[in-house]
Design a protein around this nucleic acid. Structure first.
Length: 247
DNA sequence: CTAATCACAGAAAGCTGACG
DNA sequence: CGTCAGCTTTCTGTGATTAG
């Protein structure tokens, strides 16, 4: 489903009203007719459509961040799929105050970039990379990756952010990213790495083991790329779950 | 027109779960 | 190991809509 199928960004329209619109055959903005609802709502919907169409034509993803409730940001995925940044970080531990960011992996279709602390990881590069994206996708990133980066580098995320953990939970998929990958048949051609392994590899690298860094970076690269497979899968499932179209 | 109904929004409270 | 956003549920207030 696409942004143009959505009416919940309109103030005064919730999932219930949206669903009844869909069931009445109004499945996209362009098929909306004022007679479908009362006068006041029609006015709200029409002015939303007018503004949102323009923003969408301009590819302005940021506009939709505020308009969509945060649990519905996944609806922006199809529209901005090709300009999505999949993000996964590695750190020396769970506590933002005591631990450090070691590796930041970013993937967008056809372009994976991994930044390493002490080498090419800087606030400027990171911010630039984030600014290039129209949509951010993470797993548990609302609680972990993004706040960690914001406090460590003072970067700012202002695009819609899909944290796949919540959509997964809604679909009955829990147990962490690795477990969900196994459950949904997302392949890894080698054994996966635990969080503690990531910490250990970084320590080994600090003691001079270049190979350990290479391993860490290549796993992180896989993680960000797998995030894309999961996002494709999850948005597909949610789509058939949420979007109803009259036969 | 009024009255009854409906749906959204916001507040409060409790809780789950995942990250390295 | 430390952490708490966001989900869910419940309740209430407020408009909007619709039936009469």
């Amino acid at each position: 489903m696409r942004i143009e199928n959505s009416f919940i960004p309109v103030t005064g329209v919730g999932e219930r009203t949206e669903r009844s619109l869909w069931e009445a055959g109004v499945t996209r903005w362009e098929s909306f007719a004022p007679s479908a609802v009362g006068a006041k709502q029609a006015e709200n919907i029409e002015s939303f459509i007018a503004e949102a169409s323009e923003r969408l034509d301009d590819g302005d993803a940021r506009f939709f961040r505020e308009r969509f409730p945060s649990g519905s940001h996944w609806r922006c995925y199809e529209n901005f799929r090709e300009e999505t940044c999949f993000l996964d970080i590695e750190t020396t531990g769970l506590d933002q105050r005591r631990h450090d960011v070691t590796v930041v992996g970013t993937h967008s279709p056809g372009d994976t970039e991994v930044f390493v602390a002490g080498r090419d990881l800087t606030a400027e590069r990171l911010q630039r990379r984030l600014d290039d994206a129209k949509l951010l996708v993470t797993f548990n990133g609302k609680r972990f990756d993004v706040p960690f980066l914001e406090s460590a580098f003072d970067v700012d995320v202002d695009v819609p952010h899909v944290d796949l953990m919540y959509p997964c939970r809604r679909l009955g998929l829990t147990g962490g990213l690795k477990a969900i990958e196994r459950e949904t048949g997302i392949e890894r051609d080698r054994q996966d790495l635990s969080g503690e392994d990531a910490v250990r590899l970084w320590r080994e690298y600090e003691r001079g083991d270049e190979g350990a860094l290479e391993t860490l970076v290549s796993y992180n690269r896989d993680d960000t790329e797998n995030l894309r497979l999961l996002a494709d899968h999850v948005t597909d499932l949610l789509d058939s779950d949420v979007f109803v179209s009259p036969e």
